[in-house]
């Protein structure tokens, strides 16, 4: 059992490292594309092909891995009117049901995102390769599902809120 928990913790760490890597690359690409566009348009009168469309899609490539990171860190926006989080017993008790509910909802959202992506793939608007950019949607919702499942198991022994 402890060995399984250790493996799961390692899996979570590997996932967050991957997601952070993607988000940082997307940030870097956003900055590079913006700069290239500003310089290209104003000085060289040339632009990166499809650069503006890619730039707008990169918003999703920052935000969705970011959402997965936020799930792992328990940083998603939530209400707590009764200030239950201050009560360790409640945190331990609620970890499983709350994270399972989240995992179930994210499963359905991932399924919806997959159906959406298949449609994008079959009916591309403009250049066909752009459909790859929306692959982040199903991927991220699947990752969110995985993170909430991991949290359901691992959140019980977390010391810091």
């Amino acid at each position: 059992m402890p060995r399984l928990l250790g493996a799961l913790r390692q899996l979570e760490r590997a996932l967050t490292r991957l997601e952070l890597g993607v988000a940082l690359l997307a940030f870097a690409a956003m900055l590079a594309l913006s700069l290239a566009d500003i310089v290209g348009r104003n000085l060289l009168h040339a632009t990166v092909p499809a650069g503006d469309v890619v730039l707008r899609h990169l918003v999703l490539w920052v935000a969705l891995p970011g959402a997965a990171l936020a799930a792992a860190a328990g940083r998603h926006l939530h209400l707590d009117p009764a200030n239950l989080a201050a009560w360790p017993r409640w945190r331990r008790l609620s970890a499983i049901p709350v994270n399972l509910v989240a995992a179930v909802v994210c499963t359905f959202l991932a399924r919806a995102a997959w159906a959406f992506w298949l449609d994008e793939w079959r009916h591309p608007s403009g250049q066909a390769w752009l459909a790859w950019l929306s692959l982040i949607l199903p991927a991220a919702f699947a990752l969110l599902t995985l993170h909430f499942l991991l949290r359901a198991v691992l959140a019980r022994d977390v010391k810091t809120p």
């Binding site: 940082l24 935000a63 891995p65 990171l69």
Partner: peptide, 16 residues
């Protein structure tokens, strides 16, 4: 990387 992490989680939690 830490700055990027802070920014990405913030953006992510809003955009979902």
């Amino acid at each position: 990387a830490w700055v990027g992490y802070e920014a990405a989680t913030l953006v992510g939690s809003i955009f979902v």
